[in-house]
Amino acid sequence: MSKLVPQEKYEKTKAFHFWRWLSGTKDPYLDHVEMKEQKEWKEEEQTIQDRMNERQMIHDAVYDMGRNKKQRLFHGIYVAVAIIFCFLLLVILLYTVSNLPPTGSPEKAVNNEVPERYIEKGLQETGAVNIVTGMILDYRAFDTFGESNVLFIATVTVLILLHYTKKDAAAKKEEANDRAFEPKNDTILQVCATILVPIIILFGIYVILNGHISPGGGFSGGAIIGAGLILHVSAFGFVKTEKFFTEKTYKIICFVALTFYCLAKSYSFFTGANHLESHIPLGTPGAILSSGLILPLNICVGLVVACTMYTFYAMFRKGDF
């Protein structure tokens, strides 16, 4: 059974001295010498000014075009070489273009069996009326998967470089007021945004869902949805947008979309390469629910692109979600 020891008695025990020594407030061997708190080394304002002035003076002396002859010579040669290089590149490119075969000629190198097969059998094999979508999301789906991954990696890199962690309450308050230098609560813009943002996002969804029937698809539809989100942020500010779009939402959406894309396409390639039945119905060409995996894959790509657009904007504007 343990018993509560009074404070005076406890202060005489060894455990108390040990913990005091461990926490650094008192040295037990030098009895009453209290340890001083270490001050952080701080540079004085004047020395910073002096150093900056010195650097400016050195900079002025080195880059003084009037006196430094070497610098002037280098600058002249640099400009001349740049102009010559540009003209050389222009001449080379024009010469190459003039040697290309004319458009649509049958002797062209690209006119082989690959586009022939795409054009002839594309509709029955993929079920997409829009052959371009059928090509990028069926025949060359792994290429598109790589593109979505590149977008994801770009966002992650921007997050690493620009993510700003808040330190204390004052900094947090300063950060929350991110539009300190912008016109805040513009009523005209807010009313306009309430009308337009739903229309823009609806239009983006229409473009994504009709990707295999009419021109459009994941990339363009996602860009439209991202534009709608950016308009919402510019009208209402980050505080309102954080209610439905945070860093967590971004993580979940990107993870689910990319994983689903990877699994679905792996299944389809596995069955296709081994001549197995894939059990994915192609449907009637021209209907919304048709052409097998293209519609879900379009939705995945659209989600990733929309999130990437918005995240880039938020990162460069504020450094946080």
């Binding site: 513009d186 813009l189 229309i199």
Partner: peptide, 20 residues
């Protein structure tokens, strides 16, 4: 309809930019 909603807002923002 989109233009008729959006264009006045554009003008409003531009005039605000100029006045500031």
């Amino acid at each position: 309809m989109f233009f008729w909603i959006a264009s006045p807002v554009c003008s409003h923002m531009l005039s605000k930019l100029e006045v500031t």
